[in-house]
Structures are given as C-alpha cells and as structure tokens.
Amino acid sequence: MTHPEWQEALDAYVNGDLEAQERERLLEHLHGCAGCRGEAEALTRIIKEAALLPRTIEPPPHLWWRIQESLADMPAEAPVTPITRSLSSRLRLAFAGAALVAVFGAAIWIAPRRHETGVTTAAARTDSLGPDVTVISNDAKSQPSEWAQMIWSLERESLTAEQAVFTGLAGHVDAAALARASEVEPALRALDTAINETAEAMRLEPKNSMLAKTLTGYYERKLELLRMAARLASGSWA
C-alpha cells in the first residue's frame, strides 16, 4: 500500500527534484514503508527503461516511394535566403548596456538569442525601434499588409517584454533568480525557431491565413514566456 500524502514527494524524488531536507524525510519514510519503496523503485525503473528505448523504429519500406511520388508533383523551391533580423547591436546595447556585464550570467543566456531570432524583413522601418528593426513585407514597395502590421505589433510587444527581462536582470545579481529566469530560455529558443520557420513559410505564402494565425500564436506564447522571465528576473516571482 502506498501513502497518498507522500506521492508528490515521491514524484519529485524520482525526478531528482527533491530538496535535501525533504529527501531525507522521504528516505526515512521509504525505509519503513515497503509500499512506497516499491512505488519509488517501479517509477525509477520506468524512467530508466524509457531512456533506453531505441529511438529508431524502421518505417515500412514503401514509404520512400510514396515520398518520391509526391516529389514529382512538388519541385523544390528556389533556394531561399535564410531569415535574418533584427535585434542587432544597437538595440541590444540600448537595452542591456553595462548591466549585462555586471550581471554575468545574463549575457550567456539572453545575448546569443537576440541575433538568432527573428522575422525576415523587407520594407517598412520604424524610427522608434531603430534602423535594425523592420517589419515583414512581401513587397518592398507596398504598404505592410494587415497581418504584417499585427505581427509587427506583436514583435514590438516582445521587444518591450525583452527589455523588461533585461531591466529585471540589471537590478538583481541574485544567482538563484538568474537561474530561474534562464529556465525559460530553451523554450524561447524553440519558439524563435518556430517563428522563423513560420515567417519564412508566410513569405512564400503571404495570403495563408492559417500561417498568420500560427505565427500570431507563437508570438503570444513568446510574450507569455518573456513576461514570466521578467518576473523571475526581477525577483517578483520566486
């Protein structure tokens, strides 16, 4: 029999997330409780076995032929210039400045992102964002479309949120707060990749509303994460 009151601690324990004091208490309990001990062992075994599962499963042999048939109907696009952008040196310096040097950990996890992320730009520029920040436009001579303006607006919001992260980091040299904030970083990287890919797809299919919706969703998630990082960095959310 297991004890429900120990379940949360057991989950954290097998995950390696239990703090030392709690861990000692749990181990003491496990010493005298065969049910919970068995549960812990079984969960640990599942985790180990899952990690050892073969990553590769051979697909059916006919699959490549199906792909080849599809290729015949879908010639490759002309080579596409990779997406580049945006928050390059001027903005980065404006936001971070000397604070990043002082807050040693921050530069490691945020600065590299700034020139990795972004949306292809072509036309309209905005003085308020500086010359490095431009908005998506499929036609450099035309006005930005409605979706481009919407995405521009989201992009600006994300810049503001990133600024808040920097401000928070500049005000705190608390290593624990930095570590908490940096946990958001892998998810931000993933979102930036998704934003890049979707923006590139939109460049090829500018009237695809599904892509615009997807891109908007990615930006909204990015904004949530940045706000979370800002709170973590400023210490307002332990």
Binding site: P60, L63, A76, V80, I83
Partner: peptide, 20 residues
C-alpha cells in the same frame, strides 16, 4: 506516423531554405 514521415521529409525538401 507514416503520414508524418512523408510530410516531414517533403517539408524538409520544400523549406530547407528556412534551415539556418
């Protein structure tokens, strides 16, 4: 899963330009 494999490799073919 087969559909996913097919779509993913076709996407890779069509969108390799977005791989930086």
């Amino acid at each position: 899963a087969e559909e996913i494999v097919q779509d993913v490799f076709l996407q890779a073919w069509r969108r390799i330009g977005s791989f930086q």
